[in-house]
Simulated scan of single mutants.
Amino acid sequence: MAYTGEVTVGGTPDVHELRDLIITKVAVGPMSNNAYVLRCRATGEQLLIDAAAEPGILMETIGEDGLSGVVTTHQHGDHWQALEAVVAATGARTYAGVEDAPGIPVPTDTPVHDGDVIMLGRISLTARRLVGHTPGSIALIYDDPHGHPHAFTGDCLFPGGVGNTHSDPAAFASLLGDVTAKLFATLPDETWVYPGHGNDTTLGTERPHLAEWRERGW
């Protein structure tokens, strides 16, 4: 079946099969977070984006081939509830944005700066710092050499708008500015967006609404 990105807590994961990379999306409770297991086809190495909750479900999704790393997109607690258990079970290396790492209770092995590249086997993932939802949120960009880019945006970009900035105009302006400059201005409409909650989208679907978001202020 074709990948849709529509997953529910307690439901079946959805698998997006690219030529060099396999992306498995699973939803975990209690806040219906998305977690993503990325697998390099060439080496079999795996990386988890957001050990959000339900470590048993995450370990089942990871399977028997282990895990080389876990990236936490930002410091909010619903994105790292299972991190300690997953790291203990797999020995995976931990990554997080350098500004958010102090707010994550599991030590960060590799603090990530804007523009840093995280390697997964032969796969390159470029980190982009997006400030506003938290001080050090990061998105990961996979620029597929056989197709279009894929962006894992945490809680910074969703279908219909940017992430929650808690009615802080400065934080909203910062987040929308970073999302505009670092995602919309540099990536094509075909870029597939994998958010921290809910369904996927594309930059082309959201691009026409940037001015609307700026006007409404959220």
Results as ranks from 00 to 15, higher is better:
V193Q: 03
E212A: 10
L18R: 15
G77R: 15
H74I: 12
Y95D: 02
A151K: 05
R129N: 10
D109Q: 11
F158V: 08
G204W: 05
W192A: 13
T134E: 01
G10V: 15
G154Y: 11
T94I: 04
A53E: 08
T43P: 04
L38C: 04
D116K: 12
G11V: 09
T90F: 00
E60C: 02
D50P: 00
G204R: 05
P169S: 09
I22W: 12
G77E: 14
T24F: 07
P188M: 11
T126R: 12
P102I: 06
A211I: 03
N199S: 15
E215A: 14
G91A: 03
H148M: 08
N33K: 10
P102K: 14
D114K: 09
L38I: 06
I49R: 02
T180V: 11
T186K: 10
D114F: 09
I22Y: 09
L175D: 06
A2G: 15
L176C: 13
A151Y: 04
L67H: 02
P145K: 10
D65I: 01
V162P: 03
E54C: 04
M119A: 11
P107D: 05
I118P: 00
P107Q: 11
V28E: 01
A181P: 15
A170D: 13
M59W: 00
T94C: 04
M59F: 00
H79L: 14
T205P: 13
N164E: 11
A211P: 05
V98Y: 13
F184R: 03
D168K: 01
D14M: 14
H197R: 13
W218G: 15
V106F: 02
S32H: 13
A170I: 13
P145M: 04
D200T: 15
I123E: 00
R93E: 06
Y95H: 08
P135W: 07
R214F: 08
D178P: 13
G198H: 02
P105K: 08
